[in-house]
Amino acid sequence: MASFVIEGGHSLSGDIHPQGAKNEALQIICATLLTAEEVTVHNIPDILDVNNLIQLMRDMGVSVSKKDIGTYTFKAEKPDLNYLESDEFLKKCSSLRGSVMLIGPMVARFHKAMISKPGGDKIGRRRLDTHFVGIQNLGASFSYNTEREAYEISADGLKGTYMLLDEASVTGTANIVMAAVLAKGTTTIYNAACEPYLQQLCKMLNRMGAKIHGIASNLLTIEGVDELHGTEHTILPDMIEVGSFIGMAAMTQSELTIKNVSYENLGIIPESFRRLG
C-alpha cells in the first residue's frame, strides 16, 4: 500500500503552476459535441478522468488532436452514432461519472442518447434527478433498459420552457444548458448553479453562437439557436488546488508564488487565508 512520509519544520519556496480544473474540463469537452466545427481547448489537466473522456470522444468518432501540453482540438463533424449505442460505449460510461454530461449535447444535436449509470467517486448522495428532470422538461423522453442497464433518451425536437431546479447542481445545470442552447424557443432556469466553472461553460457557448443571459446569477435565460460554431477556450485553474497551495504557504509560514490563478474567480479564498495570517 502506498504511503506518504511527511517531515515537518521546513520552509517552502518557489513557483507553483496549478493545473486546469477537472470539473470544468469535463463540461467543456462534452460541449464540443454541440458543433460540427473545430473547438480548441487550452489548459486541459493531465489526469485520469479527463484523459478517459478524451479517449471516449475519440472512440465516438470525434476528431481529437493534441496540439501542445494541455491543448487539444475537437471536431465532432460526424460522430459514430452506432457506437453510441454499443455495449463498449456503455461500459466505458459506467466507469466515468463525467459521461453523464454527454446527454445534453447528444440529445440536443442528434435527438437521442444512451448512457449507463455513471461511476465516479463514492462521496455521498450524487443523484441524477436534476439532469433527467431538466432535460425531460425540454421535451425529451427517458426510459430505462433493464436488460442493458442503461438509460435511453430521445427527443424529436427540444422546446424551450421554464423550470425550477430542485437542486442547484453544477453538472445538472450544465447538462440542461447544453441541451437548451439548441432547443426551439426560450428556456428559463430558476435556481441554476452559478459557480465559475458553469460561468465558463456559458461564456464559451455564447462565443459559439448561443444566447445565454444571466451568467453568474441563479436565473439563466437561454434563447435557442439553430446551430453553434467553433471557438477557442482556456480552462480555469483548479480553485481547490490553488486554495490548498495558499493554505500550505500559510501553515508553513513560507513564501510561494502561485502563477496563473485567475484571481478574480477565487472568491473569498484569498481573504480567508489573509485573515488566518
Rank of each mutant, 00 (worst) to 15 (best):
F4L: 15
I6C: 04
G9K: 07
L12I: 11
L12K: 11
G14E: 11
I16N: 13
G20C: 09
G20K: 04
A25E: 07
I29N: 05
I29S: 10
I29D: 03
C30V: 06
T32N: 00
T40N: 00
N43P: 07
I44D: 10
I47F: 05
L48K: 15
D49N: 11
D49R: 13
N52F: 09
L53T: 03
I54P: 03
Q55E: 15
M57H: 08
R58W: 01
S63I: 07
I69Y: 00
G70P: 07
Y72V: 04
E77K: 05
K78I: 11
P79H: 01
D80E: 13
L84Q: 06
F89Q: 06
K91R: 15
K92H: 13
K92D: 13
C93Y: 10
S94W: 12
G98Y: 01
I103C: 07
M106F: 13
V107Y: 06
A113T: 13
S116F: 10
K117W: 15
D121L: 02
K122T: 14
T130D: 08
H131N: 10
N137Y: 07
G139Y: 09
F142M: 03
Y151N: 08
Y162W: 08
Y162T: 14
M163S: 10
T171Y: 14
T171C: 14
G172W: 08
G172L: 12
T173V: 08
I176P: 02
V177W: 07
A179M: 05
A180M: 03
V181C: 04
L182P: 02
L182R: 01
A183E: 01
C194S: 14
Q199I: 10
Q200R: 06
L201I: 03
K203M: 05
N206F: 09
N206R: 08
R207H: 04
A210L: 00
A210V: 02
I215N: 03
S217K: 02
L220E: 06
E227Y: 01
L228K: 06
H229P: 02
G230W: 03
T231S: 04
E232H: 05
T234G: 02
L236Q: 06
D238N: 10
M248A: 14
A249H: 10
Q253A: 15
I258N: 06
I258C: 05
V261S: 01
N265V: 10
I268V: 14
I269A: 04
S272C: 09
